[in-house]
């Protein structure tokens, strides 16, 4: 019997570190967006891009099992987007993202959004080289989702509570949802937003800007 104690995800994590080093060198603040299907990820991303693109270059990698619909929606905003189709695969991995990064023309400084496959389970385990995972929960889902899928809400550093414009019409207890999320991940940052109306976007955009600024600072001192 040989004791090994080897990380099973070592290969993926190695690729993720390569991606992270490349992104750091380019001063690109990369976010991995994760959620269930239908949480409004792409709509949220489109609105975020529209707010950011005049200030800073934005690049997008889209992961879906099939179709290039989401990449087309992103390209319509005028920013470059590359679609990865995972086929039967349930998540993006660091190797796929690394290949996409090599294929794309990356700017010097800016934002990279990686929209993961809509799935609250598998993408939690895979580091893609992002600065943060951002989990999106919408008010048309249940308040207990963080308790049902703790792995994902623990892996994320930020939770966007989306579709808040629908709160008058749905039975959803915001306080309870936030408390549940904080039970699973005590250091989670939470923003209440609506991709439809732009509610709460000032705080979300300010958080993005501060992340990019901090990255530029570390890159300058490093």
């Amino acid at each position: 019997m040989v004791a090994i104690e080897q990380n099973i995800l070592a290969k993926n994590d190695g690729y993720a570190e390569q991606n992270r080093a490349l992104l750091r060198e380019r001063r690109i603040f990369a976010l991995n967006l994760v959620s269930s299907p239908g949480s409004g990820k792409t709509t949220l991303l489109v609105r975020t891009i529209e707010a950011l693109r005049s200030r800073c270059p934005v690049t997008v990698i889209e992961g879906d099992q099939q179709t290039a619909n989401d990449a087309e929606r992103i390209r319509a905003t005028g920013v470059p987007a590359l679609q990865i189709n995972t086929g039967k695969g349930c998540h993006l991995d660091a190797h796929m993202v690394g290949a996409a990064l090599r294929e794309m023309k990356l700017p010097q400084q800016g934002f990279l959004f990686i929209e993961n496959v809509g799935n609250l389970v598998c993408p939690a385990a895979f580091d893609l080289g992002e600065a943060h995972k951002v989990a999106i929960l919408s008010v048309t889902e249940g308040e207990d989702k963080p308790l049902k899928y703790p792995d994902m809400f623990l892996a994320a550093d930020v939770m966007l509570l989306n579709k808040c414009d629908l709160l008058p019409y749905v039975r959803f207890d915001v306080e309870l949802a936030v408390a549940n999320a904080l039970r699973v991940n005590p250091t989670l940052a939470v923003f209440q937003v609506s991709a439809e109306t732009g509610q709460g976007f000032d705080d979300w955009l300010a958080w993005l800007d501060s992340g990019l600024a901090a990255l530029a600072l570390t890159a300058a001192s490093g």
Partner: peptide, 30 residues
């Protein structure tokens, strides 16, 4: 519990996860 990382003694949110995230090839018999 995996979905409640608050301190079971004092209820604080200020906790650090020490076990539960590992995914390791522990040992092999050849």
């Amino acid at each position: 519990a995996p979905n409640d990382l608050r301190c079971p003694a004092c209820g604080s949110h200020d906790t650090k996860l020490t076990r539960g995230e590992e995914l390791t090839l522990a040992s092999v018999e050849l």
